[in-house]
Design a binder for these strands. Sequence first.
DNA 1: GTCTATAAGCAGATAGAC
DNA 2: GTCTATCTGCTTATAGAC
Lengths: 201, 201
Amino acid sequence: MASDRNTEKRIFEAAKAIFHERGYHGARMQEIARRAGINQSMLHYYFRSKEGLFEAVFRATAGEVLTPVFEVLSADLPLSEKLDRFVEIYIDQVSANPYAPGFLLEELSHHPDHLRRFAGDRGKVVFEKLAGEVREAVVRGELRPISPEDLFANLVALCLFPFIARPILQTVTGLDDDAYRSFLRRRKREVRRFIHHALKP
Amino acid sequence: MASDRNTEKRIFEAAKAIFHERGYHGARMQEIARRAGINQSMLHYYFRSKEGLFEAVFRATAGEVLTPVFEVLSADLPLSEKLDRFVEIYIDQVSANPYAPGFLLEELSHHPDHLRRFAGDRGKVVFEKLAGEVREAVVRGELRPISPEDLFANLVALCLFPFIARPILQTVTGLDDDAYRSFLRRRKREVRRFIHHALKP
DNA sequence: GTCTATAAGCAGATAGAC
DNA sequence: GTCTATCTGCTTATAGAC
């Protein structure tokens, strides 16, 4: 039929939403079908099995989240600009897909090497470039002594944590939904400021 | 029988391990029973249902993770010492239970107000104390301008993230298991250093 | 308290008509 | 390509003997 690609796309988008919200084991094929507005057997027609559907969603999500990271980190920019752009792009990216980081983290905590199976060594290569730049900047005295691993962990932690820990942070701080959204919008500036202060020699 | 409390305890510990590893939907009652070395119907004898067992594990885990936070934050200490002790105690606590933060975050992302149902306003009260101290320190010029919410988010993010994102950080940085363990051991010092640099006026 | 056996329900997957 | 109907296996939960 004419709805060929259309149906497949609708199924995929529905699956993405449900898997992101409920995780692999919490998701129900029937709920995905209902959300896509079609019959349950269509899911199997297009994606063979629940695992096949999940795999498609996982790959797409991992790509969306990691691609901008890899691009920024391998760009040819002075280190401090690179860190700024990382914060800028990454927080934008995650704001548009607030469930994605939690979804990936959850899946990877249960299947730690699911990522390596298709990201391969791409991450490692990009990271080595950054690591070299960090070490040089430290030697030149432009950066206080810090390991590349710590720097990278700090950077990503500050960007992602307010998204993945939203429920607990909202409970503790007492911010309501509106206030929390505005808190998230302000984060970009705060994270940049925090990082630059923390890295001054 | 004499094994009264003993059996209950064994079941609870097994359930804790399995729920932490697999989450609510991924956990199987049979696997919990096998791990506890008893029959599956015993689980229901002691804890009525899967949900009852999960609830017990969730409450205990939330208590373990949050109690030290609340204690440190409500202690009567100068702010900068308080932050140091927070890092110290929190990273120790999480090192002993590396699955706990991921487990709580996952559950809370699927059921955002599960926490409020028994932590109530305790978190908010403790946070307000900290918030007051932060605002005062900023006014006195001991701290660069920063909102209490950002400070708290940054603090917890830096402590927890290397634990919950271990698989992805290990893939990207290329650290093997031994190297990553040693990285985690070094974190306490790095986080303290990072925070003090970042908060200097 | 602890076991074995089994009921009851549900989820993923397939068959086959249109 | 899309639907309805149905199968199969697994999972939680209970009944009932010891």
